[in-house]
Simulated assay, not measured.
Amino acid sequence: MEEFLEVVDRDGRIISIAPRSIIHGNPSMLHKVVHVLVFNSKGELLLQKRASHKDVAPGKWDTSVGGHIMPGEDILTAAKREMLEELGIVSENLHFLYTYIHSNNYESELVYTYCTVHEGPFSFNKNEIEEIAFWSIEKMQQLLNFDFFSDNFKYEFLRYLSIYGFMPFWFSNSLKELTGSPLFSGDPNFLKNF
């Protein structure tokens, strides 16, 4: 059965609902997605290598977790659902980072990004993902100009670095210390299009 998605404006207001097959391939149809950056206590970021049959960025390394927000679905609920579907994990400790619009010649997405710390184990979806691995920030920076990563991840990673690169919040318990900050309020509208 085909997936249906909300077509939205820049503020996330619903314009219409359309099949994924119509939305993908038409960058004028903005739709909502959620990303979760999963760090370990060493500050490494979990990446997934997309399956070779995927219509977007096959065989490329991509964001820890990413997926569409279903019609009527709450953003945080979508993030938790995608974590369970893609990595087989449940996390109640998700913290909102930012939102942005990413467009390319294939699609346009209104992205809501969260982060969490999780050491595993992971039981990833082998139909969607070829492999997973933790990467150091330095290694990702060194390989950014090569053909390892999806276009979407490159954009996400550069945005993350531009906002949080100077903040070592991903280490050990630092994330817990920041949870009182408005940046981690859990409100995806807090930094809309920051």
Results as ranks from 00 to 15, higher is better:
L110I: 08
Y100E: 15
G59M: 11
G72D: 02
L191R: 15
G59I: 11
L183N: 14
S28Y: 02
P71V: 04
N193R: 14
E85D: 11
K192N: 14
H102P: 02
A51P: 00
V117S: 10
L97Y: 06
R20H: 06
M83L: 15
W61P: 09
F4L: 12
R50E: 08
L47Q: 08
Q141H: 03
L94V: 14
K80Y: 00
P182Q: 12
G88D: 01
H102L: 13
F194Q: 14
L30T: 02
N104K: 03
V56N: 07
G59W: 08
Y155I: 14
L178Q: 13
G186I: 12
N173P: 00
H53Y: 13
N26C: 05
G67I: 05
V111Y: 00
S16N: 14
F169M: 13
D151V: 12
R10W: 01
E119S: 06
E82M: 02
Y155W: 10
C115H: 03
L47G: 09
S172V: 04
L5N: 05
P182W: 09
L5I: 07
N125Q: 02
E82I: 02
L46K: 08
L47A: 11
F166V: 09
N193T: 04
Y155V: 15
M70L: 13
S52W: 09
E156A: 15
E85V: 08
M140V: 15
I22P: 00
L46G: 09
L87M: 06
V56K: 14
Y160G: 06
S136P: 05
R50T: 13
G186E: 07
N105P: 05
N193H: 13
V56L: 15
L30I: 04
G72P: 01
V38W: 01
G67H: 05
I163A: 03
K139H: 06
M167C: 12
F169Q: 09
I132Y: 05
V56E: 10
F171L: 15
P58L: 12
F190K: 15
V90N: 09
L76P: 00
L87F: 01
V111G: 01
G186F: 05
F169L: 14
H102N: 12
F124W: 12
I129D: 04
H31Q: 08
S64M: 06
L84I: 01
I23M: 05
Y114F: 15
I137L: 10
E73I: 05
E2V: 13
P71K: 02
S123I: 07
V7Q: 04
N26V: 04
Y106G: 04
E6I: 02
C115G: 08
S52G: 12
V7I: 11
I129P: 03
I15S: 06
K54Q: 14
A133V: 04
M70P: 00
L175A: 03
K176E: 13
N40L: 09
P27H: 02
V65H: 10
M83G: 01
P71S: 01
